[in-house]
Design a binder for these strands. Structure first.
Length: 115
DNA sequence: CTCATGACTAGCT
DNA sequence: TAGCTAGCCATGA
């Protein structure tokens, strides 16, 4: 137990946060890390998912901050994750999930009018 | 203890 | 828009 002392709770929080991701949605490693109480622990989140032995864990719903899949393109993990996401209705193209309203109608642009 | 690696991110060119 | 660099954090040699 004391191998990671301060990290035990973190691991538990990460797993809980990942399980809390709704089906058909995705979250970034940094986002999960923040929910777990470690804004700079994105890489540790990835490590935890890799070590997680829970088959029911929706690890495939965790992607990088820019929407791309963490696994290297062409690798088994990459294809597996893309396959699972598509099975949930998530649009995956060129190894990345559909961006949140990348192309919005002029109406939305007028309503938002940021910058 | 120091060095290298990685399912990461944000910033700069 | 795309590519590179530096920073961050835990694990293993």
């Amino acid at each position: 137990m004391a191998t990671t002392a301060t990290g035990g709770a973190f691991v538990d929080a990460v797993l809980a946060a990942v399980r809390a991701i709704p089906r058909g949605e995705v979250r970034s490693y940094a986002h999960i890390a923040r929910l777990a109480g470690r804004p700079r622990g994105a890489r540790q989140v990835a490590r935890i998912l890799a070590a997680a032995a829970d088959p029911a864990l929706p690890w495939h719903r965790v992607v990088r901050a820019d929407g791309r899949i963490g696994f290297a393109p062409g690798s088994a993990g990459h294809r597996e994750q893309a396959r699972r996401l598509r099975a949930e209705g998530v649009v995956v193209r060129a190894g990345r999930v559909a961006p949140p309203a990348a192309e919005a109608p002029a109406l939305d642009a007028l309503l938002w009018a940021p910058r």
